[in-house]
């Protein structure tokens, strides 16, 4: 709700600026930017900051989900589509058929952290263990199955917290942890938002959940992840940036064809230190190590 409010205020402000300058100055360019709800906060922060870089460009940001943004790109109604997943082959075909050759830009990374209650003694979890907890027909239903004793957890029964089945986060976690050929088990608590996952895990000693690193709270604990016998990798902005953390997904922006002009300048600025510091400030990982003030 607040997000929508922010967006409408931004749009209103943009409209106001446009009308105000409608008389003499015709050089103002509007960049339409739409898509992923994961990226919408960052996209707005970029749009606001870019006002101070180039006052002649207005970036109009709208959320609605990755699918919405990609659909708009196919229909040719946006300049930049935000997505927290890659375009499907079918979508790329549709876009090409409509005369838009989608070009992908990785603008940052989002690490999916595994959340545990503050009292949970677990330090590390392997991808295989996560698959046993989350996967359909998985063997692990109690904390004692992986040799843990969680204080305050009745019967040591694992309360598995997941997301609603059409969220990009749900699909990405399933792909990495369970692979393409396995479903989540039934009976997970499917929360309707990244923050809800963190909130429920915080209050429930038995619980395990996954959510964006940006949603970390002070009262939850993040497991470090072991992938195929590797060393345990802590979820952090640094490990997501350098690609060592196994459950980190790229955050993408798609343009129709190789960008030119104002859109290219805007994307270049996003990839600059100034733009990458903003995404880091919002709790996501920049594409490379940057030093920010």
């Amino acid at each position: 709700m607040r997000k929508q409010l922010q967006i409408s205020i931004l749009m209103f402000a943009a409209g106001l600026v446009l009308t105000a300058c409608g008389g003499g100055d015709q050089q103002r360019t509007i960049i339409q930017n739409k898509g992923s709800d994961t990226l919408v906060n960052v996209a707005q922060a970029w749009a606001e900051a870019y006002q101070r870089v180039d006052a002649d460009v207005v970036v109009a940001v709208t959320g609605g989900g990755s699918g919405t943004g990609i659909a708009a790109l196919i229909n040719g109604t946006v300049d930049i589509a935000n997505a927290s997943r890659e375009m499907k082959a079918k979508e790329i075909d549709q876009a090409r058929a409509a005369g838009h050759d989608p070009v992908e830009h990785v603008v940052g990374y989002d690490a999916l952290a595994v959340f545990l209650h503050a009292d949970n003694p677990a330090v590390s979890l392997s991808i295989e263990q996560l698959a046993g907890i989350y996967g359909d027909g998985g063997e692990i239903t109690r904390w004692t199955d992986i040799g843990l004793e969680v204080p305050g957890c009745k019967n040591q029964e694992i309360i598995v917290v997941s997301r609603q089945n059409n969220s990009g986060t749900y699909a990405y976690f399933r792909e990495i942890v369970l692979g393409k050929t396995r479903d989540f088990r039934l009976g997970t608590r499917d929360m309707h938002g990244s923050k809800d996952v963190a909130d429920l895990v915080e209050k429930t000693p038995c619980a395990i959940g996954y959510s964006g690193l940006a949603y970390t709270t002070d009262h939850t604990k993040l497991a470090c992840i072991v992938n195929q016998g590797s060393a345990c990798i802590e979820p952090s902005v640094a490990t997501a940036s350098d690609g060592s953390y196994p459950i980190a997904r790229p955050l993408l922006m798609y343009t129709s064809g190789v960008p030119t002009g104002k859109v290219k300048q805007y994307l270049d600025w996003i990839m600059s230190d100034a733009g990458q510091c903003i995404i880091q400030d919002k709790g996501y990982a920049p594409v490379r190590g940057v030093t920010c003030s």
Binding site: N165, N166, A171, D183
Partner: peptide, 10 residues
């Protein structure tokens, strides 16, 4: 069927 999996890849 008790199985509601509308977005399954399988």
């Amino acid at each position: 069927s008790p199985t509601w999996r509308p977005t399954s890849e399988l």
